[in-house]
Simulated assay, not measured.
Amino acid sequence: MIKVLFDHQTFSLQRYGGISRYFANVYHTIQKQDDIQAKISALYTNNYYLKDFNGLLSNNPVGKLIFKERVRGYLWNRAYSKRVIDKNDFDIFHPTYYHTYFLERLKKPFVLTVHDMIHEIMPEYFPNDDKSSFEKRQCIEKASHIIAISENTKRDLQNIFQIPDEKITVIHHGFTPSQESDETGAETDISKGNYLLFVGDRSFYKNFYRFAIAAAAFLQKRKNFKLICAGGGPFQHAEIEHLLKLKIMDRVTQITATERELDLLYQNTSAFIFPSIYEGFGLPILEAFKQKAPIIMSDIACFREIAGDASLYFNPFDPEDILAKIEHLVDDKALKDDLIKKGSQQILNFTMEKCANKTIDVYRNLL
């Protein structure tokens, strides 16, 4: 029996998010296996993807009180993770992010998943006191094996750190729909009418400002359309000023969507636009494929790797090209239907079973 230990990090930091969803999916799939078991070293988590997690302080009023304040909860979970690591009752350790607290005490091999190299490639987007690159480098150098979530991430990783091929395995994310979202549902008020859809964080390399310029030009021509931004938190002052300057503030809506609401937004949108200038993978692509949303996205290597010919692509640095591609897709029903059909086929390459089985193979090969 192989025993795998996942630590607390992403489950202490994220309520929702691609990284915690990835690790939760792998964890749940392992639990169904006969010859391997997994444990998460956390006392408590409110992570959406671990609803049934049975930590020592789960379903406990004391736990809820302690973990109401996120920093305090993070420190409690880290202290507990240290104790579990010190007991050494596992075969493989798989940290869920890059903090180095475990390096000096770990006696077993560990696998590190590298999601992207954005901090290293675009350091100008991050504060000077950001420790992410420093801690990530230490983890990469000491890892027994590395999982890269795309060929693009592997190339970036090797270009920066010269990691040999035999130490890296590329394992694409597997997609598991939320339990709330398997059925096509009726429209909600927010998903009624004609709209463009933007999903997730809007800062830095997500390229929201250039996209907003293109969206404004589109909305000025199409008075019956609006723009919906799902996730990413409420608009900040700089974003509001940008949208006011573009004269579209009254036609843009931000929603902190539930999984179900997000699925409905994908299902009913005229176009989902993904304008990032860099990504390690791009899980929203698979979400859009699943919900049969037509996609327009940046012409970057990672997106080409994941979406293939199931998307329309634009130059992310050129708002005029973004606008042209939006208009092309919205006006061409045959193109839209073709992309949706291709997306339904493309998502079959990204099953959770394939992701989990390849991950388990990495564990077995290490042992």
Rank of each mutant, 00 (worst) to 15 (best):
I171N: 04
L65I: 09
E279F: 06
E320C: 11
T269L: 00
P275H: 02
I326A: 12
E287W: 02
H328K: 14
V170Y: 00
N207G: 06
D331T: 09
R78L: 13
V362E: 05
K131Y: 13
S58Q: 14
G231V: 02
N46R: 15
R155Y: 11
Y363I: 10
E104F: 01
P95D: 06
S344D: 12
E241N: 14
M122K: 14
M117A: 06
R78I: 09
F218R: 08
Y98M: 02
S191W: 07
I149S: 07
Y44D: 10
L13S: 13
L246P: 00
T169D: 08
L75W: 11
L283R: 03
K64A: 12
E241H: 12
N47F: 10
V62G: 02
A79R: 14
I322E: 04
D250H: 14
N25Y: 05
G17Y: 06
A324W: 09
P316H: 05
G17A: 07
H119I: 03
H145R: 08
G280A: 12
V26P: 02
Y98W: 06
G308C: 06
D299R: 08
L329E: 08
Y16N: 10
N152K: 13
C229H: 02
G73N: 09
I19H: 07
I228S: 07
Y209R: 12
R21Y: 11
P61W: 11
L5T: 05
I163F: 04
D156V: 04
E287K: 01
I171S: 01
I146E: 03
A42L: 11
A143W: 03
M122G: 04
L323P: 09
A215C: 08
I360H: 01
I273R: 03
A148I: 00
I171Q: 05
V62A: 08
A288G: 03
F198S: 01
T176S: 08
K292R: 15
S58V: 06
D129R: 12
E183V: 09
L196P: 04
C302F: 03
G63T: 02
G343V: 00
L227A: 11
G233M: 07
D338M: 12
Y44T: 10
H242V: 09
V330Y: 03
A215M: 03
L75T: 00
K223P: 01
Q291M: 05
F317Y: 15
D182L: 13
T29F: 13
F175Y: 15
K341N: 10
P275G: 04
H28V: 00
I322P: 00
P109I: 05
S20H: 10
